[in-house]
Amino acid sequence: MTQQMTALPRPLPQIDRDHEEWWAGLRRHELLAQECRRCTQRIFPPQSLCPYCHSPEHGWHRLAGGGKVYSWVTVRRPSHPWFADKVPYPVVLVEMDEGFRFIGSIDCAPEVLREGLRVEAGFEDINAEVTLLRFRVVRTPG
């Protein structure tokens, strides 16, 4: 059992029917919000029907990629074996300039993080199906 636990791979998402297009966006290194074709409301996370007009027809709005750190967690005691040798690791909640929030990893030490820190969306290809978000701190020139 212990050996099985330590051998556990990184936890990955199940990519289901209602959300495969969103994950396909990440594979193309595009960060998407769902946009209703009928009423033009944009939502994230995506839903199978538009909750505002109930249309099943939706497209996707590609976000520009810029945003700010809204909140973050630094995990110091791992709860999953894959992360055991990665602590302490930060996980960020980023509010994009267009107004949607996303969870991701980030390319900096936890000490660097503060509310409002400018970041941009980056992409980490895990396997043929899964690409994850890895934000980058925007380095101000000078």
Partner: peptide, 10 residues
């Protein structure tokens, strides 16, 4: 859960 578990919020 798939939106956050892969990053270590489990």
């Amino acid at each position: 859960y798939g939106l956050h578990a892969p990053y270590g919020l489990i």
